[in-house]
């Protein structure tokens, strides 16, 4: 219903845009949580001030079904949006994206940081070892092997139940001793066997809000967390409640995209050119805790080392392999869901 209301709003806007005299406006896909709040406190007001254009939020864009419905009906709501790597791949294959026309010079040397001018990274998103510092502060866990070690670190552990996009199987294999360079193609059987060994201790989450709530309330004491959201939680609760280790961070870019059929693609390009400036990127990264995909942005960040990915630390992270998942997403998800449902 929310989407319908927003759609109506967007239609009204397009009807009157024929006689627009001001700076015009663009509709931005929502992502929710602290992510949108950071956009609203950093580059959106700066963009409005610099260009006189308005930026409105549309409905939630992390939703392939919503994209499909908009493309099929021709009622495209967003002008620009952030999507995750899997969704980006699906959108690209379906031909639902417009070229961005944004220079990628000065981007971080990270795999897949820009793709054929159809997607440029909005940030580098990492899954990191996350734990209750008030419980394990003396000898904190560092690796995925620690997360799977129920003797040394007893208690419930949290993982994302979308194994294809969120690295759950990769974590299991790394914990089982697979070297990062031998990770792909994934040995799914071995990963599920490893997960079996702690299955009764796992609490699954399927969104960032639940992930934060689980570790904040102490329902889970260790597990996989998102670097930005965990840093946000640390800032709220003080340093001694929740800890994280970026040592075996599983990293991948999220992407800015412009939907095919967007009502104001030129406005979207103007927006992207503005927000990809180093200062805007640094301000946003400071707020979210996610590393910016632009080298020069790090010059404006005070404590570089707190980010899971920096220009000097690229080889320490494990890069989530989008090519492997492109080919195996459906089959592996089906097997994982069957494993999850069985007891």
């Amino acid at each position: 219903m929310l989407a319908a209301v927003v759609l109506l709003g967007a239609c009204g806007g397009s009807g009157s845009s024929g006689g627009s005299g001001g700076g015009g406006s663009i509709v931005l896909g929502a992502n929710g949580g602290s992510y949108d709040q950071c956009q609203q406190s950093t580059f959106i007001p700066a963009f409005k001030k610099a260009t006189g254009m308005d930026v409105k939020y549309g409905s939630f864009a992390y939703d392939l079904g919503a994209w499909k419905a908009q493309q099929e009906s021709g009622a495209v709501e967003w002008d620009v949006a952030v999507v995750d790597a899997s969704e980006f791949d699906a959108l690209r294959r379906a031909g639902w994206l417009e070229p961005l026309g944004v220079s990628t010079k000065g981007m971080l040397d990270f795999p897949g940081v820009s793709v054929d001018n159809y997607g440029i990274a909005s940030e580098i998103f990492s899954q990191v070892v996350t734990y209750r510092a008030d419980k394990f502060g003396g000898d904190p866990p560092k690796t995925w092997a620690d997360v799977f070690n129920t003797k040394k670190y007893p208690g419930k552990r949290m993982f994302h139940r979308n194994a294809a996009d969120m690295g759950t199987l990769e974590m299991a294999l790394l914990a089982d001793g697979v070297a990062p360079k031998d990770l792909y193609p994934l040995d799914v059987n071995r990963a599920l066997r490893k997960l079996d060994s702690i299955k009764n201790d796992i609490i699954w989450y399927d969104n960032g809000t639940k992930m934060v709530a689980l570790i904040q309330q102490g329902e889970a004491v260790i597990g996989a967390g998102w670097d930005g959201r965990i840093k946000d939680l640390q800032a709220q609760t003080g340093g001694n409640v929740v800890g994280m280790s970026p040592e075996q961070a599983i990293a991948r870019p999220d992407y800015w995209v412009i939907p095919k059929g967007a009502k104001n693609p030129e406005g979207a390009r103007k927006f992207l050119r503005f927000i990809t400036q180093p200062k805007q990127q640094a301000a946003f990264a400071k707020c979210t805790g996610y590393p910016p995909p632009w080298v020069a942005a790090f010059d404006h960040l005070p404590n570089k080392s707190s980010y899971a990915v920096t220009p000097d630390k690229l080889h320490n992270v494990i890069v989530w392999n989008s090519n492997y998942w492109k080919a195996n997403r459906d089959a592996v998800t089906q097997r994982f869901n069957a494993w999850l449902g069985g007891s």
Binding site: D63, L64, G65, K68, S86, A90, N162, T333
Partner: peptide
């Protein structure tokens, strides 16, 4: 099926 896979048929 809808949000993650855009699979309207299965949904």
């Amino acid at each position: 099926a809808v949000q993650q896979f855009g699979d309207f048929g299965a949904a």
